[in-house]
Design a protein around this nucleic acid. Structure first.
Length: 585
DNA sequence: AGCACGCCGACT
DNA sequence: GTCGGCGTGCTC
């Protein structure tokens, strides 16, 4: 007998091994096998008859049973093909940690029985979370709840009294939760995307929390959006899929709307007073418009707390004489300027640089901060309101300054006023999801401030349909506009995107490689290939280039064969090619 | 991805 | 005369 094993390698082809006499292996089992003279852990994807001469033997199984069902193996292969990455790297990113010494006794995963119809629902209403708790507590079958991050998994683990599968829990707990879920011993399991293949006795309920959150598709394997994998999983095993979000991705809204599967969008809850403040020509010198100044005065006078939300994490330093930004010599990205530490730091390579006396390009010596980051807003608001406590760190301050993540730290009704200092940070970036992001942030702010508060949106575009939809508490108007726009411009869900990028080693090399990649795609019908552009501000110098492909829904199958040679081997030049299907930004 | 093998510059 | 640079290629 021969067994075929996949590893965390960028190779499509499995490796074949001999099965030593007396060893029994199963498809979906983790094994340790020699590769490149070392022991590595892989997953058995096939067992077949054949002549094993010349093949190295499997060393040992990692568990005594399969860790993945046949259906989960197939799901992993689908995800790999869909994301133009390897079966092995996809599967190995979706498995629990291996046991320490004294490995435990475990049961094989259940195989889904065909015959159940799958159903996807999108829960958007204000009561979506309370309803989920109620539903999961009340029903009999197993449930898998996927949170965008570990914090969310911890919160929901406690709220649902669920088994923890995410890396925030100890390894032994995660392993136990994985196998308990498969045996139906843990009825509700909570994890992050690493738990997407957790075995469950079918038919199960699969839940994706905060469906719109970009953390559901971070860089690195598995290179697929958790929502897309769960949709396919629900279809294959006949499970029910529940997507939760006040502001779903346009893709999910469009799909669910067509199936009349949107729940709670007509629920009326009381909404805060929403004020838009035009920042044209104001924000340069001061972060507060008149309406926001009034909001702070009114609410603090009534003893209510104010939260100012800033989308930019860090400010930059600009030379007003030549307009040049201080950039990292190595990475080319603008350096983050901290007023507190009086230092510049690169957000990519973390290199710290002392504050320059003069502009390195023109010699000008009046370098000034650019953009409103939390630190700068805090300083400006403190100056404007010297008698108020203003803080980025203390949530009990009268005025709290923070990033969008801070919205979650206040339960509804606890805030008198939320001010979005500059919504346009999201609208102005050259990203087709800008509108979606701005809408999501403003809606979340309105939900957080609650019915007795006030939301102040500072923006250069007070008439933008995303702003208007939040003001009028009308989701449908936003999605209607946004879907129209996506249809006209050919963006998801109507067409799919793929980003091909190259990190070159020597100058000019990146450019040559990216052109080679683009050349390989010539002649494939139905594609729009955008011209290669340097990635980042000084991308050309740093050798980072990218181009974007737009195509039909079957895009990965169209371009996969042409791009495969660039992905499996790093060829002559040594430049690294990366392919990102369905990029989130 | 790692890791070894393989040909050309600065050290004991 | 070697140590070591990373460019190239293989891993069952």
């Amino acid at each position: 007998m021969i067994c075929d094993v996949v590893f965390d390698l960028p190779r499509q082809q499995p490796f074949s091994y001999a099965i030593p006499p007396g060893m029994t292996l199963y498809r979906g089992q983790r094994v340790s096998a020699p590769l490149h003279g070392r022991s590595r852990i892989g997953v058995v994807v096939e067992l077949r008859h054949g002549e094993a001469t010349g093949l190295k033997p499997i060393e040992r199984p990692v568990e005594s049973v399969a860790i993945l069902s046949t259906a989960a193996l197939a799901l992993g292969r689908w995800a790999a093909e869909e994301s133009l990455s390897s079966w092995g790297s996809t599967l190995l990113a979706l498995l629990p940690p291996v046991a320490g010494p004294g490995g435990d006794v475990v049961a094989p995963p259940p195989e889904p029985r065909p015959g159940h119809a799958s159903l996807t629902e999108l829960w958007v209403g204000a009561a979506r979370e309370a309803r989920l708790v109620e539903r999961l507590r009340g029903e009999a079958g197993s449930a898998l709840v996927i949170a965008p991050d570990r914090e969310g998994a911890a919160r929901w683990g406690a709220r649902l009294d669920a088994a923890r599968l995410d890396s925030g829990a100890p390894d032994t707990v995660r392993r136990a939760a994985w196998f308990a879920a498969g045996r139906g011993r843990a009825r509700i399991s909570v994890g992050t995307r690493s738990a997407l293949l957790t075995p469950l006795p079918p038919p199960a309920t699969l839940v994706l929390l905060d469906e719109h959150d970009a953390a559901h598709k971070p860089p690195g394997p598995p290179r697929i959006h958790s929502r897309d994998l769960l949709r396919q999983r629900a279809m294959l095993e006949g499970s029910r899929l529940v997507l939760l979000s006040a502001t779903p991705s346009v893709e999910s809204w469009w799909r669910a709307d067509a199936q009349q599967a949107i729940r709670g969008d007509l629920e009326e809850t009381s909404w805060p007073e929403v004020v838009t403040a035009d920042t044209r020509g104001i924000l340069r010198n001061h972060p507060l418009t008149l309406p926001l100044t009034r909001g702070i005065e009114d609410m603090t006078r009534r003893g209510r707390r104010v939260l100012l939300v800033v989308t930019r994490r860090a400010g930059a330093l600009i030379c007003p004489e030549c307009g040049g930004l201080m950039r990292c010599d190595d990475c080319g990205v603008p350096l983050a300027f901290s007023r507190e530490t009086k230092a510049l730091r690169c957000r990519l390579c973390a290199k710290a640089e002392p504050l320059p006396e003069r502009c390195p390009s023109c010699g000008g010596h009046r370098l000034s901060p650019l953009g409103w980051d939390p630190e700068r807003v805090e300083a400006a608001v403190s100056r404007r309101f010297p008698r108020l406590t203003v803080s980025r760190a203390d949530p009990r301050a009268q005025v709290v300054v923070g990033t969008p993540a801070a919205l979650r730290r206040f339960s509804p009704g606890r805030l008198g006023c939320v001010g979005l200092v500059a919504l346009d940070g999201l609208l102005s970036v050259p990203d087709f999801r800008g509108g979606e992001r701005a809408f999501a942030l403003a809606w979340a702010a309105a939900e957080a401030v609650g019915p007795n508060g006030r939301l102040i949106i500072q923006t250069l575009h007070p008439e933008h349909y995303a702003v208007r939809a939040v003001k009028e508490q009308d989701r449908r108007s936003f999605y209607k506009q946004e879907i129209l726009l996506r249809t006209e411009l050919g963006y998801p869900p109507f067409r799919r995107l793929c980003a091909v990028s190259v990190r070159g080693l020597r100058p000019g090399e990146g450019r040559a490689r990216i052109d080679e990649c683009a050349q390989a795609l010539r002649g494939i019908a139905g594609l729009t290939i955008y011209p290669p552009a340097p990635l980042g501000a000084s991308g050309a110098r740093s050798g980072r280039w990218q181009f974007v492909i737009k195509g039909p829904v079957e895009l990965p199958r169209l371009i996969g064969p042409a791009l495969a040679p660039f992905l499996t081997v790093r060829r002559r030049s040594g430049a690294v090619v990366e392919v990102e299907m369905d990029p989130v930004s």
